[in-house]
Amino acid sequence: MMQLLVPSWYPYQCLGRALDEMLGEPLARAPADANVAAEHVGEHWQFIALLDGGEPVLGTTAIGEALDRRYPTRRIIGIDPIGRAEVRAHVSRIEEMFWCLVMADMPDHPGFGRPLWNDGSGARERMLEEVPWRMDTIELFAAKRTTRFLSGELPSIADAFLAALLNTAAHQGIGPLLLRPSLQRWAAENGQGRPFTINT
């Protein structure tokens, strides 16, 4: 049985929930237990993983690709080669911002067992500087959207990652900073449980 191993760290909780919402059904969860993680993946791995009996699938894009093959009728990476390239390009851009937020959140994450940066260091703010200009790029492509979702009439992994990004930003209190006009329209049309739950 396919299971998601989702750490309790909220960026990955947001991502797990968005993947459920994209598929329209919750993926089974692997027990959130350190021993389980060590059994399936490297002992230091603290991020999301997809378990299916064989080697674990790690990394957000790899999980999206595996889900696409597991649920081919959902078309979560588009339909034809051009459409699939468009979804993958969106994902590539969105996940960079997601990682920015993950890095900016490091001081609050207790799992690494080592000193983190001090209050007032400016490190978090410097990391977050990477986000708005990248969001401007997403907005450029979202402004050209002619379909309900970022690329087509069905939710793709790009939409799921965008929902996870916005919810992670909301957790950090910077959600409104990320929303641009076209992205606000996307959130209004596709948030509020249809299919995503987006807190801004």
Partner: peptide, 8 residues
């Protein structure tokens, strides 16, 4: 799966 994982 391994290619996708390593690429990611």
């Amino acid at each position: 799966r391994r290619v996708d994982t390593q690429a990611a």
